[in-house]
Each structure stands twice: as structure tokens, then as C-alpha cells.
Amino acid sequence: MMTVVSAELADTSVGPPRWLASPGKIVVRLLVYGVPTVMILAPLMSFLAYSFLEQKDNIVTGHLTLANYAAFFQSGSYLYVFFGTVKLAFVVATVALFLGYIISYLIWRLEGSTRYLLLLLSALPLVMNYVVKIYAMRSILGFNGFLNSFLMASGIINAPSKLFIFNQTAVMLAMAVIYLPFGILPIFLALERIPQSLLSAAADLGAKPGQIFLTVILPLSLPGSIAGALFVMVIALGDYLTPQMVGGSEGFTFGRAIWSQFGMAFNWPFGAALAVVLLVTVIALIGLASLIARKARLG
């Protein structure tokens, strides 16, 4: 490896200066920087720009304005939905952290090939289409669903109950199940990063298993786990379909509010402003997550 690098260095020192790259390199660089710019940055910038445009009589006038943001901060219902959605995402993330930690810990404690088999199984729902998962959850929780048939067959209830579908409980259950794999993977990685030697040392010094968990494993894996949970929160924040489909009349979330400004409403500037509000929230959460993760790495 070393020789290859030095050979390359030697080569560039006699050739043209480094900044005068070959055409091939320019193409590669254009691809590396250009594609994300065109595909990601440009659309983001365009909706950022849209959010500051004025709209009158269904036509964007081109004047700059803060009215779209003012409309959001002054309207009771959009603020209410926004905080409701943040709260929902937070609860989902907390559930994913709690359940995800338990599952990851149990998998992590296993030895040999069963460990990776179970990890793979727990990540398997990720390859399934998300709408299919929502429908699956609905056929479990629904009126004539699996849960109700099971409870009736076992004699616990006499008639199908509507307790499990079209309410907040259903939203929590469905979202927790759908987003759990996103929690399990980062938490497992956080556990995996703990050096085995630390555990052996703790055991050698006479610590009981419970003590090892509380004083070594938990403190070392918690920051990474929290960062993982924050990512779950980010995904849950943008999900408006699950609440809509299992949440019943209370299933209105911020993503759906953004959606409603497009379509027949034709209010792209206001929709863009709402989207920017959500984007800023998401960036703040990701920033927080990476801060926690970095702190954890530095110890």
C-alpha cells in the first residue's frame, strides 16, 4: 500500500501540477459535485426561494415577502398540527429507542451465526414496501382484523372492538412497528463498538453482570442509541401516510398539511414555507444527533 502511494506522489511531482487535473478527473469531479448539486441542492434551493414569494389570486407575483411564514406562525391550526406531529415523532422515537435497545441488546449478547441471522431478520422489514406495511398493520388492528379475531376466539371479547384502529394508539403502534428496524440497526452498532476487553476487565475486577450493564455497557452505548432514535424521529416527522391511514379522524399531521397546499390549492409558496419549517426542524435534529454521536466517540 505504502509503495503505491509514494509512487503516485512521485509521479505527480514530475508531471503537471496537481491542480491542473486531467479531463477524466474533471469529469469525475463534475459528477461528484455536480450530480448532488443538480439533483438535491437545486430543488431544495428552489423551494426555499418559493417560500419567500408572494402569491395573489393563484398567481405567483414574483415579489419577495415573509407573509407565508407569518401565516404559519399566526395560524392556530398549523402550529397545533406542527407541535402535534413533533410530539408524535418524539413518542415514536422513544418507543423505538426503548424496544430497539432491548432487541439489539438481546441480539448482541448472542454468539455465532444466530446473531447475524437475527439481525438480518430484524432488518428484513426494511425491504418491504412501506405502504404494504401500513395495510398489513391495518389488517392486524382492523375491525375484522387478526387481533380482534384472536381476542374473540380466545373469549376475551364478544364483538370486534374498535379500540385498536383509527385512533392515536393505532398510530403509535403502527409507526413503532414500521420504524423499529431503523432503531435496531444504529443501536446494535453502538453496542458492537464497545471493546470486548472492557467487559472482560470489568468482570475480572469482580463486577456482577448487572453492574457491568449499568456502569459499562449502558453509558457507552446510550449516546449512539439516542442518535439512532433521533434519526427515527426525523423519518417519523415526515410520515403523514401512516397517521392518515390508521389514525382515523385524528390522523392529521404536518406532512399532510404541506401536501394540501399543492394539488388543487395551488398555494406553492405557502406549502414551500411549511416545508422549510419542517426542513429546519429536521436539520436541527440531525445536527443534535451528530453532536451526540461525536461526543460519544471522543468519550
Binding site: 395560524s75 391550526s77 397545533y80 398540527v81 392529521f252 398539511a257 394540501s260 390549492a265
Partner: peptide
Amino acid sequence: IELWNEIKAT
């Protein structure tokens, strides 16, 4: 749309 969103948010 505003009215409908208010209904759904209440």
C-alpha cells in the same frame, strides 16, 4: 383548504 385543515386539526 384552510377551513378543511382547521377541521382536521381540531
